[in-house]
Nucleic acid binder design. Structure first.
Length: 1028
RNA sequence: GGACGGUUAGCUCAGUUGGUUAGAGCACCACGUUGACAUCGUGGGGGUCGUUGGUUCGAGUCCAAUAUCGUCCA
């Protein structure tokens, strides 16, 4: 055994070099490898695969820390713990990033490169960022089984995707339909609703007039419609009016009155004014609408201005008599509601949009103009024709593409859908009956509400980066031709082998779905005139399969058998619907079991302004910056410390100037600048936004937050406490008889250790990370360092006591390290290695030999026999006593080196308990106890302090600062009087005495008596002091 | 418009079933550095818990209303 002296262990944990070595050793030893092992129970987490769009930020760091804590804890508990790593191809997000760079750096579009070349470029990007992401995870200490690393676009995921698609298609759960697409005219692709944001912009409400063809006497010559998008009139194929406007208006009014009844007084005036407007509308507009409804029934027609097309006036309930002019223009190809009307009324559909955002030949004279130019021209022309009735100002909620920030042009396109009815129901059932538990439970609402809508899932994307839809199609003019092709396909051997399935989409399109990549079959289909669908699948389609595709599905692999269902999914709340819900329903559909039994939703990390961190806002923080400055353990402990149940984490961040290390607050102004000038040294540094060579020439400033200082300090404290223990273990041995009764302080720390062990485990199992971190922080800092280690110091000098105190120190340190290992893996491993050099037997409860690596050490099992509430209570007398003495010292400004003495008035039991601890009072407060008795000699000049069951008299004969002592007592007196008044008031309250529980009343009485005696003591003291 | 969450010390946050004087870290003040740790130690000052009303012997905690901030879904 070698015991290091102070020089051998530095007084700082050098995380920058140690962590790399430790991590490599863990990997080399296979510490993170999980294998099918029937002797152990599995514990599995699949990582929420980070997008390969860019590097990880602090939100990912939080997410992955929380997972690693669970994995490491369960691994120590003896589970076969598998953390499945991987990344997500992230469809449009990644393609958009690569396309943008292509444009910026080479001034090329994706069409210049072509599909294959672009996809190749994206793979290069993916390789680069995947490496960066996995590197970040490793720096954080994530204990993933890297041998199993997967990617949502790799071959095995592709197999899972095709099998799933084939299965759903065979069950008729996938179909093609019309859907309004959010067309991004800049990227020339459709973007999903989730990739769209709305912005209120200033716009207008134009009232246009369409002439009636051959109006009869008494009939209007024009029909007025109002629109915010006049250019779409070029695609109008009808104008609709409600078939029964009077009834519809009455129903609307009834609804409004009902709302008035339920409304609060504040909201009523608004409804009342609505009702008034309704009355005017009834008088002035309704007769006209009735007339138009009649005309619609008669099949009257209108002439669409500019284009000259004859369009019908139709009766349809979509036209709301309470809205606008009561009539509505119908543009089926650019509005989903109009599309429905067109289906009901059998109207033609005319698309006027080119993919680049210009209007096509259907737009007549404006063909080739952009939509916005077309709008101006249309309005001008309508005005010239005298058909522009009026123009109103109007605030419009305009959709924009999140990727390109340009306005969305909506139009209807063919789209593949997954039918959600049964699938959604299965996922709702799983949560309702508790097979999947969501923590915190309130998040189940959003999940259930969203699934409850059972909206079909549009899965096609007009992209090149993703899983291409495995369908080959051919359209015919007549249904007979389609049927004949279907027959031909169905007689092929591949169909009978279950490799292909065929369906007809009305009226005359044949779709063949192919189960797995099969060039020969594809060639055959091609020769029959079938062409593969261009679209790729929504990125969430492959993500939805992640828990089982990573384990080998569709094969019945041993891993799938053993590790599935996984135990918990840890993620953030914004993808509960997009991802969590879909994993549940796909898991149930494909494997027949839920993918995980628990879901933990953790808080989000916000910046100093309460905004979510994101790369585009420029307020993201690279966890590597934090690791470089504070170390990975501090990052992890800090994030766990902040991970409370209800609060998002607000984290103001600063640039750290690379020239002078001063902090520069990150603000809304500077967070997107490529360079920033330091407030204090006035030199310039660069940021993540630096692109030009000139900007990059400035050194880059890391972005950090002082919210990690708590954790950094804690890691340092832990390191140094361990260092102290190790420096004092010479002669240590676990062997040898210990005294039959341990001294109070030993029993106390062992009791605290057992309690904190129970608490940490139970909190972590409930995903209450902050509580667990706080519990272990308090134990390590306050209980172990501030008291136990301090009390160990005199005992280590005492040959009689040394052996015993070493045993307890080693035992507590060993277990504390294991308890902390899931949260702070590196520093605990580093200490463990040092400790192993001194001794391998440290746990006097189990007598076990310590493991080579703490990562493989057993999770500490609390020793319930050590828990002694009465010991903890007794110890609190000591804590109170030392506090009282220290306060007097401080108030009297007595130099620390100056010893003082005091007497204690207390019971015999208390004397027997505390007198043996006198040496600690000398060491910890430089105070000597002269006497412990029920009637001590009281020093002539003293400061008296009353604490529970004791009166302490500190001898101030040599030190008295009368003024300070009077002021201390007066302050105390004020406080006491306040409390006494409160208690007296309560106890003299008849209803309190008669209704409150007896034990509460007794407690109050006791407390009051105590306070009164303290008040008398303080008053006496003041009186005496004033005489001095 | 709907759902959910926040509002407690200068800042960032805890506060379990309602029960002594509402806690922590940072910041602040005073004192302290010849071996665990100044990324430290000791002590101190500082909040009546967004507002209003209610239930109760007793409310930061339960209920209602209201203000305000945020998130998600329409």
């Amino acid at each position: 055994m070698t015991t290091p002296d102070a020089l051998e262990i530095p007084n700082r944990f050098d995380f920058s070099t140690a962590c790399k070595e430790i991590y490599q050793a863990w990997v080399d030893q296979g510490c993170f490898d999980a294998n099918v092992n029937k002797d152990k129970k599995p514990f599995t987490i699949v990582i929420p695969p980070p997008n390969v769009t860019g590097a990880l930020h602090l939100g990912h760091a939080l997410n992955n820390t929380l997972q690693d804590v669970q994995i490491r804890m369960h691994r120590m508990m003896g589970f076969e713990a598998l953390w499945m790593p991987g990344t997500d191809h992230a469809g449009i997000a990644t393609q958009a990033v690569v396309e943008r760079r292509l444009k910026e750096l080479e001034n090329k579009t994706r069409h210049d490169l072509g599909r294959d070349k672009l996809v190749e470029r994206i793979w290069q990007w993916k390789d680069q960022y995947e490496a960066r992401i996995l590197g970040q995870l490793k720096s954080m200490g994530c204990s993933c089984d890297w041998r199993r690393t997967r990617f949502t676009l790799d071959d095995r995921c592709a197999q899972a995707v095709r099998s799933t698609f084939f299965d759903l298609f065979s069950k008729s759960l996938i179909y093609r339909g019309k859907r309004l697409v959010n067309w991004d005219t800049y990227l020339q692709t459709a973007v999903s609703d989730d990739e769209v944001f709305t912005e209120t912009v200033h716009g207008s409400f134009w009232h246009l007039q369409y002439p009636v063809i051959d109006p009869k006497p008494g009939e209007p010559t024009h029909v007025t419609i109002a629109t915010t998008r006049p250019e779409t009139m070029l695609g109008d194929t009808a104008v609709a009016v409600h078939p029964h406007p009077t009834e519809a208006l009455a129903r609307f009014e009834a609804g409004l009155r009902e709302k008035w009844n339920d409304a609060s007084a504040k909201d009523r005036p608004a409804i009342e004014s609505q009702l008034e407007l309704l009355e005017i509308r009834r008088r002035e507009l309704l007769p006209q609408l009735e007339l138009l409804a009649q005309m619609a029934k008669e099949g009257r027609q209108l002439r669409l201005p500019i284009i000259g097309r004859v369009i019908p006036l139709v009766a349809d309930e979509w036209a709301k008599p309470e809205m606008g002019s009561g009539c509505v223009k119908i543009t089926p190809a650019h509005d989903p509601n109009d599309y429905e009307v067109a289906i009901r009324c059998k109207l033609p559909m005319i698309n006027i949009l080119n993919s680049d955002g210009t209007v096509n030949e259907n737009a007549g004279p404006y063909s080739g103009l952009t939509m916005s130019k077309t709008r101006i021209k249309v309005v001008e022309e309508m005005d010239n024709l005298g058909l522009l009735a009026k123009t109103e100002d109007h605030q419009i909620e305009l959709k924009h593409s999140d990727r390109s920030k340009t306005p969305i042009e909506p139009y209807l396109a063919d789209q593949w859908f997954v039918k959600m009815d049964q699938l959604a129901q299965s996922a709702m059932d799983a949560v309702n009956d508790g097979r999947v538990k969501i923590y915190p439970p309130r998040y189940a609402n959003g999940y259930l509400d969203w699934l409850g809508e059972k909206r079909d899932w549009p899965v096609g994307r007009q992209l090149w980066w993703g899983h291409q839809i495995p369908i080959w199609s051919r359209s015919f003019d007549s249904p007979e031709q389609a049927k004949s092709l279907k027959f031909q396909l169905e007689s092929m051997s591949e169909r009978s082998a279950g490799l292909m399935t065929v369906q007809i989409e009305e009226p005359a399109t044949v779709h063949a779905c192919v189960r797995q990549s099969d060039p020969a079959l594809e060639l055959k289909l091609h020769s029959l005139g079938l062409v593969r669908q261009e679209d790729v699948l929504d990125t969430w389609f492959s993500s939805a399969l992640w828990p089982h595709s990573t384990l080998g599905w569709p094969e019945k692999s041993p891993e799938l058998e053993y590790f599935y269902p996984t135990n918990v999914l840890i993620t953030s709340r914004d993808i509960i619907t997009l991802w969590v819900a879909r994993m549940v329903l796909m898991g149930l559909n494909n494997v027949g079991e839920v993918p995980f039994s628990e879901v933990f939703i953790h808080p989000k990390i916000l910046d100093g302004y309460g905004e979510t961190m994101s790369k585009s806002k420029g307020n993201g923080v690279d966890p590597i910056d934090v690791i470089d400055k504070f170390g990975p353990d501090a990052l992890r402990f800090g994030l766990s410390w902040l991970c409370t149940e209800t609060q998002d984490v607000r984290m103001p961040v600063q640039y750290e100037c690379p020239h002078c290390e001063a902090k520069v607050n990150q603000t809304k102004e500077n967070r997107q600048s490529p360079t920033v000038e330091c407030d204090s040294c006035k030199k310039t540094f660069s940021t993540q936004w630096a692109e030009s060579a000139e900007d990059k020439a400035h050194p880059k400033a890391p972005v950090v937050s002082d919210r990690f200082e708590v954790a950094r300090n804690f890691v340092n404290k832990l390191w140094n406490a361990s260092r102290f223990v190790m420096m004092n273990l010479s002669g240590y041995s676990l062997a040898g008889q210990s005294s039959p009764t341990l001294p109070l302080e030993d029993q106390w720390i062992l009791s605290q250790l057992a309690s904190v062990t129970i608490k940490v485990e139970s909190e972590l199992k409930q995903y209450r990370y902050a509580e667990a971190a706080r519990a272990v922080y308090d134990f390590a800092w306050d209980h172990f360092c501030s008291f136990y280690v301090e009390m160990a110091k005199p005992r280590l000098q005492d040959p009689e006591a040394r052996h015993q105190v070493q045993r307890v120190l080693a035992h507590v340190l060993d277990r504390m390290l294991r308890l902390l290992h899931p949260i702070t893996p590196f520093v605990t491993e580093a200490i463990w290695q040092q400790l192993n050099k001194i001794t391998r037997t440290r746990d006097f409860v189990t007598n076990e030999t310590s493991t080579d690596w703490i990562v493989r050490a057993p999770w500490p099992v609390p020793n319930h026999e050590h828990i002694k509430p009465e010991i903890e209570k007794q110890f609190s007398h000591f804590v109170a006593l030392i506090g009282a003495v220290r306060e007097i010292r401080s108030r009297q400004n007595i130099a620390p080196k100056q010893q003082i003495s005091f007497s204690v008035k207390c019971s015999e039991e208390m004397r027997d308990l505390l007198a043996p601890m006198s040496k600690f009072l000398e060491a910890m407060a430089n105070a000597r106890a002269d006497e412990w008795s029920d009637n001590p000699v009281i020093p002539s000049v003293n400061a008296a302090v009353s604490i529970p069951e004791m009166d302490v008299y500190v001898d101030l004969t040599q030190f008295i600062d009368v003024a300070a002592e009077i002021s201390r007592n007066e302050k105390l007196l004020v406080n006491l009087v306040k409390q006494i008044q409160g208690k007296e008031g309560r106890l003299s309250n008849e209803s309190f005495v008669s209704r409150a529980p007896a034990d509460i009343i007794e407690k109050e009485r006791q407390a009051l008596a105590d306070l009164v005696s303290q008040r008398r003591a303080a008053e006496d003291a003041i009186e005496k002091l004033k005489k001095l």
